[in-house]
Design a protein around this nucleic acid. Structure first.
Length: 304
DNA sequence: AAGCCTTCCAACCGCCGGCCA
DNA sequence: CTGGCCGGCGGTTGGAAGGCT
């Protein structure tokens, strides 16, 4: 049987669109609407397949498309939504007016993903070092781990807050919240927590590499999120931290995994139970690794 | 200046789900 | 219920542009 291709390959032009083709497409759609994309090229007089026309229109020619570099706010939104939804670019794009899924996907793959991977690898390296360094060094490494976790949790919490205020349906459904947490846990960012590779006698026990049941997140995801005083743009810290001197490492061939669920739930609890809302400034390192602080100086590595 | 390398992004490709006959 | 059509989505790629030696 086989699927009928969207267009006859012969006689169909491929590659970059010319300004003339753009003009033809725009003029036609302005006059007639796009109708069925498959028949559009024939009616408009274009030697393109319908899919190509649709892509060109939705990603480039459609009115309201925003060109140019992403703002910090847009970047934050992408990071948060990617933490929530993974590579569901269309969902992410729906929250960024004027941006297309293709553009966001490209931006993630060329800018944000790289940073996230660097950070995750650095985290992994830090934990490896913990096993060989002197005990006093461990606290520093743990601080890095803690920082990373706090950032991850803050991105998640803020994203959940945002979505919960936008969708009363979702916030009223623990299962859907759990599903979102599950997606988050199975995303690249969540993966960075799971794929820590301790050696023998590791500090953390490796259990579940990938969670596939929403039941695992029952308690965390059902925590009611209140709209209010969460500090904005927490997630940018992931990027900022990388910019501020986190160095990438190359060893990423991990096979054993380390479960951070205890850690993350602890940090999550601290965040969610905080009497001062979701402001993260109170986190700061001390001699025990991390503690609560009101230090708001720019040098505080936990400030976002 | 020239060649090579890397980065970035527009566009392509194949798959999937919804709709309809 | 089934099969075909269609649009949408996400992964991937090719080439242009810029940087480096």
């Amino acid at each position: 049987m086989g699927k009928i291709p969207c267009c006859d390959k012969s006689g169909v032009k491929k590659g970059a669109w010319t300004p003339e083709e753009d003009q033809i497409l725009v003029n036609y759609i302005k006059r007639h609407g796009h109708g069925t994309w498959r028949s559009l090229p024939k009616h408009a007089g274009l030697l393109r397949c319908g899919k190509s026309c649709r892509l060109r229109w939705t990603n480039y020619l459609r009115p309201g498309i925003k060109r140019g570099p992403f703002s910090q706010e847009e970047e934050n939104t992408i990071i948060q939504l990617h933490a929530m939804f993974g590579n569901r670019w269309a969902v992410i794009a729906s929250q960024l007016p004027g941006r297309t899924d293709n553009e966001i996907k490209n931006y993630w793959n060329t800018h944000l993903k790289k940073r996230a991977i660097c950070l995750a690898e650095n985290l992994q390296e830090n934990l490896l070092l913990c096993q060989y360094d002197n005990p006093s060094h461990i606290k520093d490494q743990l601080s890095n781990v803690t920082r990373h976790m706090i950032q991850w949790e803050s991105a998640r919490v803020e994203a959940e807050l945002r979505l919960s205020t936008e969708s009363s349906q979702l916030s009223s459904s623990p299962n859907k919240m759990a599903d979102r947490y599950l997606q988050l846990w199975n995303s690249d960012i969540g993966k960075s927590f799971r794929e820590i590779k301790p050696k023998d006698g590791d500090m953390y026990q490796s259990n579940e590499p990938e969670i596939t049941s929403t039941a695992k997140f029952g308690s965390s995801s059902s925590v009611p999120i209140q709209a209010g005083n969460i500090k904005n743009s927490n997630s940018t810290n992931i990027i900022q931290q990388e910019r501020d001197g986190y160095k990438p490492i190359t060893d990423s061939n991990s096979s054993s995994l380390c479960d951070f669920s205890d850690f993350t739930s602890t940090v999550s609890d601290m965040l969610l139970d905080s009497p001062v809302g979701y402001d993260l400034d109170f986190f700061q390192e001390n001699e025990d690794g991390f503690a609560i602080s009101l230090d708001r100086s720019p040098d505080n590595p936990l400030l976002f």
